[in-house]
Design a protein around this nucleic acid. Structure first.
Lengths: 197, 197
DNA sequence: GGTCCAACTGACACTCGTGTCAGATTTTCG
DNA sequence: CGAAAATCTGACACGAGTGTCAGTTGGACC
């Protein structure tokens, strides 16, 4: 087994251990035991427990970041709605593709370390900014509801999405992928009330 | 200082320490130092660090639970909308009234302990069930949007609210209480899109 | 002022996870 | 093969935080 393989093996087992027990309840011993290597081997590949965790989350954040594209409301070939749907769909795909890591990120990544918290907050802040800008643009075009600050709209929509992901990953919410995309799209568009068109 | 006072004093300082550093980064020493008592004193009042934390969160969950009332869509004296608004308003009040504890609950209460996680999940599950039932009822009455499963609607609305609370408590989201109630009400009712009435 | 008791103290012993490193093992290659 | 390099091993020393308890403090009551 070459270096890259061993490293990947450790990452995978670390991920599973973290997903099962949470970061704080997991020890380096748990990880090396799962991977059937000795304690020392772990430290040949990673600085410490935190470093593996960070690498797992960084990779996932990168994938997530790639999957989110800015919505162009003026693109004649794709409606705003379909662009939004595609974003939802892609994020959902990344999440479902690696539930274990998604779980780490969504529910177990808080309070690891001040520096790490800042990184998460920053990713999250960028998402909020992106949404805020989109909504501001949308409002100028007259397609976004009047009233609430766009920053609040950004927080609420992100919250709705995030909670869906948490339920999926944490409690195996039983719903098809398309059903979830559909539900979120409708919810974001029209809210809870039946519209009397 | 009598026993009840000392206990309360320890609770208060524990809350502040937890809110500032998070559960895992806080030590019993941090708490007793903040409260200007010796290490041993702490153990006269609490089993261990976890017990204080649990008591803080339990109290807060109880207050939260009290503040949420089931919506009666058939009540002739109060519209559904005003009942929902009142619920939002009360939860917001409880949260703003004790931001430090709210922060513990909203962002720092995960991964403390399996038993504790279950307690949180259970509270959260009850909320979801309550919402789900309300939406099912609302749908029968023809006032809730068709399509998405009510369970998904429940998750998304709770997520939107929760995220607002997190932002308020964690990042001092600048918005008046009324503005937030208003924003969430509108978002839940109509979603993001401008309605062309 | 003395005695008693409740409340408090903090040094101590202990546990648990950490990170290391000298030696063992395996692989590579002449 | 055999030597050198690469990789792995796990016993060990260490530190941080925990929970305890014998001893101290202080104030209530006679």
């Amino acid at each position: 087994m070459d270096k890259a393989e061993r490293r990947q093996q450790l990452l995978t087992h670390a991920r599973d251990v973290f997903a099962k027990q949470g970061f704080h309840a997991s020890t380096v011993d748990d990880i090396v035991h799962a991977a059937h290597v000795a304690r020392g081997t772990f430290y040949l590949y990673f600085e410490d427990k935190r470093a593996v965790f960070e690498e797992l989350v960084d990779r996932f954040l990168a994938k997530l970041g790639m999957s989110i594209l800015r919505v162009d409301p003026l693109d004649p070939s794709r409606s705003v709605e379909s662009q939004v749907r595609e974003n939802i769909s892609r994020v959902l795909e990344v999440t479902l593709d690696d539930r274990a890591t998604a779980k780490l990120l969504l529910t177990g990544a808080q309070g690891i370390d001040p520096a790490f918290d800042r990184k998460l907050a920053s990713f999250y802040g960028e998402l909020l900014t992106l949404l805020d800008e989109s909504y501001t643009e949308g409002r100028e075009l007259g397609i976004i509801v009047d009233g609430p600050k766009t920053s609040l709209l950004a927080v609420m929509s992100l919250g709705a999405f995030r909670e869906l992901l948490i339920q999926i990953v944490d409690r195996d919410l039983d719903a098809e992928r398309d059903e979830i995309v559909e539900a979120l799209s409708i919810f974001l568009k029209h809210g809870l009330l039946k519209s009397f068109a």
